[in-house]
């Protein structure tokens, strides 16, 4: 066996056979574009940061809203439990303040239909009122944890490691490289399942794949 860079006869024959019987095309165009975008990201971060400023601001605002929602969910009592607790306590004080005790239920049709949602939207200013009503009704049950809405409102933060790839995918989309952007977005989803993609990327992925 030759130790130098040149292949021996058997090695050369096997190499030729390998290329003939297992030919491999190069990387796809989408992969090319993803790598090139990444290289561009590494070099011109400042310029691209300026270009991406609106998107970054929108993302920051969305993150602040998401955190606010989570915090509000963490402290807000759920009307469902108000109802249950009030009804459980009703026999003890049936004539005390029935109207006040049932106030959250009677406050509106939408809330009656979907009490969990109403908890999410309830302004913080109503909480002292509800607490006072509970106290007046003799209800001593503590506020329950926030209602579970199936995870729809749980914010999925973008991992720091995914930031660069997400930015690259958005840059590709902005450059009109839809196929490359879609490929990059799919890679992101595969690596970080549940990651929150910007709306344009979500829309792009929702489109039917072009026939090649």
């Amino acid at each position: 066996m030759s130790a130098g860079p040149g292949l021996g006869r058997e090695e050369a024959a096997l190499a030729a056979r390998l290329r003939r019987q297992w030919p491999v095309s190069g990387p796809s165009e989408a992969l090319d574009q993803a790598v090139l975008a990444r290289a561009g990201t590494a070099r011109g971060a400042r310029r691209r940061t300026r270009a991406r400023l609106p998107w970054l601001l929108a993302s920051a605002a969305a993150a602040v809203l998401a955190v606010g929602t989570v915090l509000r969910l963490a402290v807000a009592p759920a009307p469902t439990d108000d109802i249950l607790a009030t009804e459980a306590a009703a026999p003890a004080a049936p004539a005390a303040t029935p109207a006040a005790a049932r106030q959250p239920v009677a406050s509106g049709g939408a809330e009656t239909a979907a009490p969990e949602r109403s908890a999410l939207r309830a302004p913080a200013a109503t909480q002292p009122v509800q607490a006072a009503e509970r106290q007046a009704a003799g209800v001593t049950a503590p506020p329950s944890p926030p209602a579970d809405d199936g995870g729809a409102r749980q914010a999925v933060a973008v991992p720091a490691a995914a930031e660069a790839e997400l930015a690259a995918a958005v840059a590709l989309l902005e450059a009109g490289q839809d196929a490359a952007a879609a490929a990059a977005a799919r890679t992101l989803l595969r690596r970080w399942p549940g990651i929150e993609l910007p709306e344009p990327l979500q829309a792009l992925l929702a489109e039917p794949a072009p026939v090649e």
Binding site: R19, P23, V24, S25, G26, P27, E29, D32, Q33, L36
Partner: peptide
């Protein structure tokens, strides 16, 4: 320009 420089794809095969 980058795309023009890189296309067509260089094949690693035959």
């Amino acid at each position: 320009a980058a795309t023009a420089l890189l296309m067509p794809h260089a094949s690693a095969g035959a």
